[in-house]
Write a protein that binds this DNA or RNA. Structure first.
Length: 437
RNA sequence: GUGGCUGUAGCUCAGUUGGUUAGAGCACCAGAUUGUGGAUCUGGGGGUCGCGGGUUCGAGUCCCGUCAGCCACCCCA
């Protein structure tokens, strides 16, 4: 009788893997806190409707959804954005603005597994609500860069492609595309990089052949790399609203420079992001080598809070996934070896000494010192081996001689240095050794 | 959902044209070892050979199916 196996795509964290996970999370959390973001969380299980209302059925196909015992249609959360929109929307009037929130949470998608993608994964999400100007984007992109740099990743490892759905909309309008056509053009643009001209097939089936000059116009904006090229293209059109949008771009790029993160960012109108709820600036982070899928992605979604029943509240956010991120750190040799070592290992002579030793161990632990000892009585020599293997810096030797004299021997396992310490002073002596030198 | 590759111990793998009771290294446990170190030696536990069926006197080995994993497509909130 075999035990039931782990569900495909779900992850188990043995202590070593858990240490890596905690390392990632800690750095992300510290980064967000340094930026003044506040941590929140929401339910893992949500009404199915939360995810089906705004998007198509393809998304529903990738949901972990079922009917619960009360007959409710429910789904495991596949992303945080709807939840956070609801949370913020429900209390928007009571929340001090700008609302800067982050979370580190597990998500679920019913997908085929692949390198860097499972059916369960963690994401760091950071969002700013209530700020319509590009200052919010500056803050978020700076946080994203901080989340990279704190691990030792530089602009040589990662770059951020920065684009703008607003500008795309204005541009397409200028070329006479209707709103319905615009959505399908953007969907084609999203695939243009991979598929080439074939990307327009879906559009043409729906809206008829694409005039050559329109196609050229799309290709022109799609190919824009760098602000100079963007400015040149926009100015050639003489459209006032596009000009105004360009001013926003300038403000954003100046802010990023001032924050010292400009070197990570590349203006690249080839990105539009598949999701239809994005309304303005969008960005995606990739590794320079191009071996991995996207590391992070985000953008502005000014309509979403309102669409979830809240007030009109501008919003920007991004997410970093843990799987690809960890692969990147591994590939660059930036994952430190995780040590879960004790500080002190107690070496215990016999049953009589054990009484004294456990008391000291308990006191050490109460003082926040990681203290270990052999649960079962084993030979002295063996205990030294165990102490060594535990990675502890110090050993406390509770031998018969020592305990009878009312002392314990404190041994530095690195230098071999030993000294006798009064039992009552054992905790203090250990702390001096650990912190003092 | 589509296609390719791969499944033998916790890990890395060996296993002859199909032939007795499936092996090694690492890891783990114990002993040597009742007062000083990641060593050494000895021993031990651990396998329905992913699972199911078929061919055969006989299958880890050949065939079919299935499941799982990896990779690519699709998708990517």
């Amino acid at each position: 009788m075999a035990l039931p196996k782990t569900l495909p795509g779900f992850r188990e964290f043995y202590p070593e893997a858990m240490a890596v996970r905690r390392f990632l999370f800690n750095v992300w959390r510290e980064s967000a806190l340094a930026f003044g973001f506040q941590e929140y969380d929401g339910p893992v299980l949500e009404p199915l409707e939360l995810y089906t209302r705004k998007s198509g059925d393809e998304i529903e196909a990738q949901l972990f959804s079922f009917t619960d015992k009360g007959g409710r249609e429910v789904a495991l959360r596949p992303e945080m954005t709807p939840t956070v929109c609801r949370l913020v929307g429900a209390k928007a009037n009571a929340l001090k603005r700008p609302i800067k929130w982050f979370s580190i949470a597990e998500f679920y998608r019913y997908e085929r597994m692949q390198k860097g993608r499972g059916r369960s994964f963690f994401q760091f999400n950071a969002d700013i609500f209530g700020e319509a100007g590009p200052e919010a984007e500056v803050e978020l992109i700076a946080l994203l860069v901080q989340c990279l740099r704190r691990f030792g990743l530089s602009e040589a490892d990662v770059y951020i492609r920065l684009s703008d759905r607003d500008l795309w909309l204005l541009y397409l309008e200028e070329y006479g595309f209707s709103p319905e056509e615009t959505a399908d053009v953007l969907s084609a643009v999203d695939k243009l990089e991979k598929l080439g001209d074939a990307a327009f097939r879906g559009y043409e089936e729906k809206h008829g052949a694409l005039a050559p000059e329109k196609r050229e116009a799309i290709q022109a904006l799609f190919g824009v790399r760098g602000f100079e090229a963007l400015a040149a293209l926009v100015q050639s059109l003489g459209n006032e609203r596009l000009q105004a949008r360009l001013a926003q771009w300038r403000q954003l790029l100046d802010g990023l420079e001032a924050m010292g993160v400009g070197s990570f960012v590349e203006v690249d109108l080839g990105v539009v992001r598949g999701l239809s709820y994005y309304t303005g600036f969008v960005f995606e982070a990739f590794d320079r080598k191009g071996d991995l899928r996207a590391i992070a992605g985000g953008g502005r979604y000014n309509d979403l809070v309102r669409r979830y029943g809240g007030p009109d509240l501008p919003a920007v956010g991004f997410a970093i996934g843990d799987m690809t991120f960890q692969l990147l750190l591994e590939a660059r040799g930036l994952l430190p070896t995780m040590v879960q070592a004790a500080d002190v290992y107690a070496i215990i002579g016999g049953p009589a000494e054990r009484q004294k030793a456990l008391r000291v161990v308990a006191d050490l632990r109460m003082a926040g010192v990681r203290a270990e000892y052999p649960l079962r009585q084993v030979g002295f020599g063996k205990q030294f081996k165990l102490a060594d293997q535990s990675g502890a810096r110090l050993a406390l030797i509770f031998g018969e001689d020592e305990v009878q004299r009312g002392v314990v021997k404190l041994r530095d396992l690195r230098s071999g240095e030993e000294e006798d310490v009064e039992l009552a002073r054992a905790v203090a002596a250990v702390r001096e050794r650990l912190h003092g030198g």
